[in-house]
Design a protein around this nucleic acid. Structure first.
Lengths: 194, 194
DNA sequence: GGCAAAGTAGCACGACTGTGCTAGAAAGGG
DNA sequence: CCCTTTCTAGCACAGTCGTGCTACTTTGCC
């Protein structure tokens, strides 16, 4: 029998078990039984923390999003704005295994959010949060055009997908290079406009 | 009992039934039973055309990809290169209901392809085909930098995702505007480099 | 007509699913 | 010490799943 731990910590461990199952077998295999097995718990025990499968999935999705957003907010602002923006965006992209996990999990939940209203609400929350973050980042670089905000946001999400599905053709170095090129263009245009 | 139809046509009808189920309930609900019900067939009848569920899903995914790629190849080349590129890319984006269906279905399959080798092979095939298409399109505009190819490819895929999940914040007009802005920048850079 | 092929339908099996439910163990405060 | 709360565990039910299998109908060719 696993030693008792702090309830919040137990929920976090269960969320991470969900992530591992999703990475290994996909979201459709993240059943309460499979997640409980992955976490080393009985189904009845898991359901003491999450009454339904839906709650479990929502929590796992929210935790994945919060790990990303909290890292973005933790970036040191006391440096060149261009560097700040680049570092913040780097926290979203699948550049290492930790961030790759978050991206894979996120993609699985995003896909399901198209047919699951509860997940859709969570998705919208994060989408709008990130959208505002991109707005602030571009403002910091002197760009205010909403089209440019959507442009870099879409670019980053597209790079994320490419990094996930073709790590051979879109490795971390390439993702970084594309991002740098885009930011270069952006900064240059701002300068010439001024 | 449904009248007998041409076998290939029947397979196409079944693929479209898969698409409808995916849009309505998600890929995880696209069971042989549900698809057969959607198509108005018995399970045994469906399995006369697709021996396994995996075959059914692969076919449905391939058909969705082919509908997009064939439209791209059908774009009239006898006009301004900039227009050709814009029209080709417009065939990928979820700008109307038909294309939106393809994109939603594609996203569902892409997500599952991370844990399904058979779908991964199909995904890679299409990814490389589109990658080459973007390479040709940029070459037509005078751009050859591989980073620029990945950049516009990622941008389009990101716009697709945004158009799918937030049609309110990223409506067709916005997707088009972002694409135009990107192509404008691209063409201008080519001119100044020359 | 007959006969083979193609198409349609439905049953049955074993496996897995979410969740309602009960029972017992552990923890902590009095 | 006891008693309440929290936690862990497991059973049971009703449902869905993929697929192997057989039987019947329709089609098309001779």
């Amino acid at each position: 029998m696993p030693r008792q731990v702090d309830p919040d910590e137990r929920r976090q461990l269960l969320a991470e078990a969900v992530w591992r199952v999703i990475r290994r077998d996909g979201l459709e295999r993240a059943s309460v039984r499979e997640v409980a097995r992955e976490a080393g718990l009985a189904v009845g025990s898991l359901r003491h923390y999450f009454a339904t499968q839906s709650e479990l999935h929502q929590f796992a999705m929210r935790q994945a999003a919060e790990r990303v957003t909290s890292r973005i907010e933790a970036v040191d602002l006391d440096q060149d704005p261009r560097q700040v923006v680049e570092q913040k965006i780097a926290e979203i992209l699948p550049l290492d295994d930790e961030r790759r996990t978050e991206c894979e999990v996120w993609l699985a939940f995003i896909a399901r959010s198209l047919v699951d209203p509860a997940l859709a609400a969570l998705r919208d929350e994060t989408y709008e949060l990130l959208g505002r973050a991109f707005g602030h980042m571009l403002a910091r670089l002197g760009a205010t055009d909403p089209i440019e905000v959507e442009r870099i946001y879409a670019l980053v999400d597209g790079l994320t997908v490419h990094g996930l599905i073709r790590p051979d053709l879109a490795p971390p170095a390439t993702l970084r290079a594309v991002l740098r090129q885009h930011l270069d263009d952006l900064c240059q245009r701002v300068r010439t406009e001024a």
